[in-house]
Design a protein around this nucleic acid. Sequence first.
DNA 1: GTCTATACACAGATAGAC
DNA 2: GTCTATCTGTGTATAGAC
Lengths: 210, 210
Amino acid sequence: MSPAGSGDAGAAAKGDGSPTVGPERHRNAVQQAAARLFSEKGFTATGVREIAGEAGVDPALVIRYFGSKEKLFLRTMTMSVDFADLMGGPLDGLGERAVAFVLDRTRGLVVNGPDATRSYSAGVFAALLRASDRPTVRAHLAESVEEMFVGLVAGRLSGADADLRARLMAAQLTGLMTAMHVVEDPGLTDASDADIVRYYGRSIQQLIEG
Amino acid sequence: MSPAGSGDAGAAAKGDGSPTVGPERHRNAVQQAAARLFSEKGFTATGVREIAGEAGVDPALVIRYFGSKEKLFLRTMTMSVDFADLMGGPLDGLGERAVAFVLDRTRGLVVNGPDATRSYSAGVFAALLRASDRPTVRAHLAESVEEMFVGLVAGRLSGADADLRARLMAAQLTGLMTAMHVVEDPGLTDASDADIVRYYGRSIQQLIEG
DNA sequence: GTCTATACACAGATAGAC
DNA sequence: GTCTATCTGTGTATAGAC
């Protein structure tokens, strides 16, 4: 598909904070390859030997560095709260903005820093949800939802059952992402973003207001 | 936990349509054990040998009967459209009714007929979603959502973008089930059903009406 | 013919050699 | 610190016992 993992090229120098030279470089290469493969092919279909092959290292190193395939998955498929800003606006129209944000990131690819994974992407969420058969993955997913969707808006809602309403709003956003990236309903993925924002956003807004 | 697979006992005679005697009985025992284990422990954590053990048959038979563990999973974790009746009522209050239905079946266990799997349960949905890493499972899930949520209400909505609105409504129901049975948010599972029905139902109703 | 026992293939994980 | 060889466990296929 996309010529993303161009491989050997792009070995340009970094600044100073996070070195791309020395032993760290192998570790980073594994992490980057894993992030790409996991978010594209999923946990099950991605093998340790495949990750190692793309990163240009020995398969045993992958385990040695990260403990297990599952740990590596958890480390790379981590979403951060970088859209705290978006939620920080006025309550008016927050529903529409939240939906628009989710749709905007719908095709986004994973971007990793050298030490921790940053930048949210719907692909990450889908990969987590698809692999939620495993308890550790489920816990990780729950933590992410709590941190990203619930926590950011819970304190801002007023009126009765504010916490419950925030969680129901999180459930709605989860549902939209699930429908688009797991169920992959063509009726949704082919629909115009503007329409989805309008209808779904209005529905969410209903929860934000009492 | 439950003494479900009581095994040898209960070998009572059946009517005439579907025999519980002879070779069919083993097949049925496997299916029943699989349904219970899959919906309780998930696809990955449930082994073929474990299913065979609980059913009291040889592990090889499981594969011989159903082709593969995945095929068996698909066959047992199938939801039917037995709640077509519930959706058949008036459009007024349909949102609340849909949410109430989902919550009602929230703790239901899987019940299988001898030939096909019947009776919807949220556990089945959760098991499917959790195992959606596999393409066949994902296709099966998409089919179920289309058949159960979208198809039943799509023709009934009027106004602009009726199909899109029906799919968005399906996404919301999906989200509620995901939040409760995959993410397992305690703030939702411990909340009163009446509150959830009220808030979430009202939100869904917004989509039903233009 | 139907079930049982055994053998194979593949992936993740480990222990030891350069 | 990095790679080679091996082990374990799971899904799957086959050949033999009643």
